[in-house]
Design a protein around this nucleic acid. Structure first.
Lengths: 145, 145
DNA sequence: ATAATTAAAGACAAAAATATCTTTAATTAT
DNA sequence: ATAATTAAAGATATTTTTGTCTTTAATTAT
């Protein structure tokens, strides 16, 4: 469904949301370990997610690292997809046609649009914080151990 | 959702199902034109789909080309995904975790599994023929014109 | 038989995605 | 001020995906 980059982005974001705060930041090593992601590659992805401190914030130097504000934690999961430029997965034609629409549907259009709408709703209503809470409560996991 | 290869495979299969029969075969050019796909690349993909004549059949030489038997046309759309080795899209964890399961779910697992099940059902119940009929009846389209 | 036609097979090329490594800049603690 | 620490930025490498081109083999019509 998503690229590796986006999978790593989602996992890192959820982990940072759960573990960090403005006075408790996380290093790249801790994040990549906890989410089973390649550290250097994850660092690159976090550079994107910290652009404009939109989703993730960071500070350099000793005791620095990555963290999220409470405000950012309350963003919908879809914001991560938007930044990673994978929101299109939620909109595209399942057969890859550019002009697939109600007026000129592909043969899977009418059935797939119902599923697509549920995907959109899921990513737009679920917040990052909600996913993070499930991990904190031990109801969900973010690694492969 | 799917790779370009699989998108081309699905479009080509649906087109061949609609236009061909054992005594009316289609050339690669006709297929790639009708489905807005790169001809040489599509030829490669058809080589996979014709392996063992499982889904698509072909004969070489004059008046040769690609076609489908009535039996093959009645296969579920999922058979194309299986051959293209993209059936995993219907099974994988949306966050890319290898060990995501009921016992050790990712934080999106419980909500996403409902959507995933609908995708599986869609691809397993819909037949290639059904999609092809929609095109024949002018209810659906397979190109970008 | 021969020539024409068509897909199959294989080699190659380009682009994109994934991953790593090194250098730089910012921040902090001392 | 200095040294240590950390992310940012940039360069490079590897792998995968996508795409093209050429040669081969099969089939058919003449």
């Amino acid at each position: 469904m998503f690229s590796k980059s986006t999978e790593y982005a989602l996992r890192a974001t959820i982990y940072i949301a759960q573990k960090s705060s403005e006075n408790c930041k996380l290093g790249i090593k801790a994040i990549s370990d906890a989410t089973d992601s390649p550290p250097h590659f994850t660092a690159k992805i976090l550079q994107v997610l910290t652009k404009n401190n939109k989703i993730i914030s960071s500070v350099r130097g000793p005791n620095g690292g990555f963290y999220m504000t409470e405000e950012a934690k309350s963003l919908p999961v879809r914001s991560v997809l938007d930044v990673m430029e994978e929101d299109s997965v939620l909109e595209r034609c399942i057969l890859g046609l550019n002009k697939c629409s109600e007026a000129k549907p592909c043969p899977m259009h009418s059935q797939y649009k119902l599923i697509k709408q549920q995907l959109i709703t899921l990513f737009e209503t679920k917040t990052i914080m909600e996913l993070a809470s499930d991990i904190r409560d031990g109801e969900a996991f973010i690694n492969n151990d």
